[in-house]
């Protein structure tokens, strides 16, 4: 077996790769090994999910599953950092995954070229240790929330509009879930305004929370929503209220140990 072959133990080359993120105030060697043995689902991988998937890949999450349908178009390129001009007209998931693989040989990247339906979302969440929800519709977000709840894995919802963004950090059975906040799907336009700098920031912050949770480092923002209002230059966090009558999580016993 060569030193780069997959095991849960870090090879010397992997230790070299992650040298700057292992140490005081960042990850322990054990935490980095936990990342290596973890699987993260990111859907979709545009303005927010793209930088999230990139940061998870570069940080060394062992398996990153990305889902994103369709082909890259010009208006995507104000924010979709996994894309580039030569990829215009090409399928996003296939090429985005190739770029991710080019950034870290020690990570397995799995690409899904469409938006998962209820059944597939559930199957994917069950194969994952965390779900990062970054799609452009509330319908997809609520679907991913239900899938993460059923699979009992942490759920991070990163969302944006214009120059503002939100990030909610949730654990099924222990915190509010997305449906506690939105029992009915709120209306949202398909062509929302967006500046790439805010979507990229929210995606990176979601990745940071995922890295903390998966590696056991720092203090995750459990049951809180971060609001970054770039337009007014204001940042807030709010403690979330769990809905005792939530159609998704109200009857759920506590999440599994260690999740």
């Amino acid at each position: 077996m060569t030193e780069d072959e997959a095991t849960d133990t870090l090879s010397p080359r992997e230790r070299e790769r992650y040298d700057r993120q292992m140490g005081p105030g960042v990850l322990t060697a054990e935490g980095q090994e936990k990342l290596k043995s973890a699987t993260a689902l990111v859907t979709r991988t545009g303005g927010m999910g793209g930088p999230a998937a990139l940061m998870l890949t570069m940080a060394g999450v062992g398996r990153v599953i990305i889902a994103h349908g369709g082909e890259l178009i010009s208006p995507d390129l104000n924010r979709q950092i996994l894309g580039s001009e030569p990829l215009l007209g090409k399928p996003r998931a296939l090429y985005f995954a190739a770029y991710l693989r080019s950034m870290n040989r020690y990570v397995e990247v799995e690409d899904i070229d469409h938006e998962p339906d209820d059944e597939e979302a559930k199957e994917l969440a069950e194969r994952s240790d965390i779900v990062l929800s970054c799609p452009p519709t509330m319908e997809e977000r609520l679907r991913l929330n239900r899938a993460a709840s059923e699979a009992r894995v942490p759920f991070l919802d990163a969302a944006q509009w214009g120059m503002t963004g939100t990030l909610a950090v949730m654990k099924p059975g222990e915190t509010a879930c997305l449906q506690c906040l939105y029992p009915e799907e709120p209306p949202f336009e398909e062509l929302f305004p967006v500046v790439g700098a805010i979507s990229s920031a929210m995606g990176s912050l979601a990745a940071l929370e995922a890295i903390k949770i998966l590696s056991g480092s720092g203090q995750p923002m459990w049951n809180r929503m971060l609001t970054y209002d770039g337009y007014h230059g204001q940042i807030r966090t709010s403690d979330l209220r769990r809905d005792p009558h939530c159609g998704c999580c109200s009857s759920m016993p506590s999440a599994r140990e260690g999740s």
Binding site: R44, G46, G47, M48, G49, C134, P135, P136, T137, M138, R141, A159, Q160, W161, T164, G165, T166, Y182, P186, F188, F192, V194, S199, M225, T227, S238
Partner: peptide
């Protein structure tokens, strides 16, 4: 007051 956002 946080109007719902869902942009990706």
């Amino acid at each position: 007051l946080i109007a719902p956002v869902a942009g990706g």
